[in-house]
Write a protein that binds this DNA or RNA. Sequence first.
DNA 1: GCGACAG
DNA 2: ATCTTGTCGC
Length: 205
Amino acid sequence: MSAVSRRAGRFSAGRAEEAQRRLGALVEIRELPSFPPRVVAGVDVHYEGSRACAAVAFLEYASLRELKTTTALSYSPLDYFPGFLAFKEAPAIFKALERCEKPDVLLVNGHGVCHPRGCGLATHVGVVEKVPTIGVALGPLAGARPGSFAKIERGQSSLYVSVGNLITLEQAEKVVRRLLAPESKLPLPLYLAHRAARLAARSRG
DNA sequence: GCGACAG
DNA sequence: ATCTTGTCGC
């Protein structure tokens, strides 16, 4: 890794793995208190150089009506390392989540418990924020625990759905299937969050 | 040296 | 993820 192109900072893989095992042990796999959920949201982060912009897009589950979007500009602290996405994206996500109410369930662009240490980005966010989360990724992660995800085949691509926190895999898959949109590989809330984060990073950067 | 593993 | 036009394939 070249010192100029990779911002590793004080990142220590050993300490990060320990944190992931600690958070992963706190995951609670259980049914949502109320199903189907009323309000769902998706969160995504867009990067412009060293700046980061997180967006949370809210939808009414029954109607798929867009409710609102919350964004937050922040600083991108770290490059991406496989297995450690949360240490790059979670800080920006936390800042955006501070600015809005919690949805009944939050979709996150990344894996949940389908992760070598049972703590992908969706789990990291769900455990820290104590909010139900679903991990949605376009590809598998090497070393992930077998049987910890549902694979949704979608023509060219596939979706890997896993529990983030406070939901069951069965409910997570139902929610994702309901939110699939023809205009995007990702479910609607993540598609909207993705677009909102990019727009906000450009207009408010 | 080759291969590769969310975003 | 991001750099970025045309191009191959259904």
